Simulated assay, not measured.
Amino acid sequence: MHRAEKLLEKFNFPTGDLRELPTSQQTFDDGGHYRVEIPSVEGPATMEAVIKEAKELDVTVNRVSQGSGIMLLSDAEITAMVEMGRKENIEVCLFIGPRMNFDIGASGHVNPSLGWRHAGMDQLKYALEDVYRGTELGLRSILVADEGLLHILNEAKKSGDLPNDLIIKVSALMSPPNPVTAKLFADMGGTTLNIPGDLSLDKIATFRQVIDHTIDMYVESPDNLGGFIRYYEIPELVRIASPIILKFGLRNAAGIYPSGKHLENVSITQAREKVNRAAIGLKQLKDHAYKQSLSITYK
């Protein structure tokens, strides 16, 4: 192991998982340690329901994300979501399509890790058109699950072909499972990185030794990502991984991708329950952070 450790040390990477769980010294720009994301907010009606439920439960939602894809929303729907986000100070993050699990091939269906990537140059070209359309309608946050697309979007930002303030969120469907991969995705243009929801605390702590980018993590994962529920660990997650966006998915939820009017009621009901789960999870954060005398700041 000595040679491997020396090599990792040479390139400024941790030489092992950090069982001492050091406190992260990093925060969001305003000094806050955590944010809240509600995923699978598939259209304006669902976003309206999230905002209403959040106000009723006194939960601050900082980001909503969507999985069906920009291509399956009309201009009016995208504009409505962007405007709601602007009014309520909520980041609206939309997925890019089409992708392999929308296509005629079989591999995107039998291999979930491939299903959200883009097959061939035509499909990659269509994905870029999705981004152009979204940004022209005011969208400034997109969800990416393909390394090639991540690279070309970063190049487009640097060249001025896409807005410099465009947030590129690395999806849970291509989660970096270690800090070296996280650095790779960050160097390729990822601005906020979704790490796997089943990493142990000592593994998560290593990320903050390598990257200063925002970390996203499901504290309740949907079934296709494991179904983990980690509410009692939220105080420690915030302490060691700040700045972190806590994602409240929903176990035992119905699959709604691709969504539309035919699934709108299901989308709304599930999104409202995610806000309720966020209220429960944040109470754990408040209660147990206080008991542990943790300095947790939300701004």
Rank of each mutant, 00 (worst) to 15 (best):
180 V>K: 10
181 T>S: 12
182 A>N: 09
183 K>W: 11
183 K>G: 03
185 F>I: 11
186 A>V: 13
186 A>Q: 10
186 A>S: 12
187 D>Q: 09
188 M>Y: 14
189 G>Q: 03
191 T>Y: 12
191 T>W: 13
191 T>S: 11
191 T>Q: 08
192 T>N: 14
192 T>L: 15
193 L>G: 03
193 L>S: 03
193 L>W: 04
194 N>A: 09
194 N>C: 10
194 N>Q: 02
195 I>K: 01
196 P>G: 10
196 P>S: 13
197 G>V: 12
198 D>S: 14
200 S>R: 12
200 S>E: 14
200 S>H: 13
200 S>M: 11
201 L>N: 08
201 L>A: 05
202 D>V: 06
202 D>F: 08
202 D>H: 13
203 K>Q: 13
203 K>V: 07
205 A>N: 06
207 F>N: 02
208 R>H: 03
210 V>K: 00
211 I>D: 04
211 I>F: 15
212 D>I: 13
213 H>A: 12
213 H>S: 12
213 H>W: 14
215 I>D: 12
215 I>G: 05
216 D>E: 05
217 M>P: 04
218 Y>K: 00
219 V>T: 05
221 S>F: 05
222 P>L: 07
222 P>Y: 06
224 N>C: 15
225 L>I: 15
226 G>Y: 00
228 F>R: 00
229 I>C: 13
230 R>V: 03
231 Y>K: 04
231 Y>L: 11
231 Y>T: 04
232 Y>R: 15
232 Y>D: 15
233 E>R: 08
234 I>R: 05
237 L>R: 10
238 V>P: 05
239 R>K: 15
239 R>L: 14
239 R>W: 12
240 I>R: 05
240 I>N: 05
240 I>C: 01
240 I>P: 00
241 A>G: 02
241 A>M: 03
242 S>N: 07
242 S>Y: 04
242 S>P: 01
243 P>K: 04
243 P>D: 08
244 I>L: 08
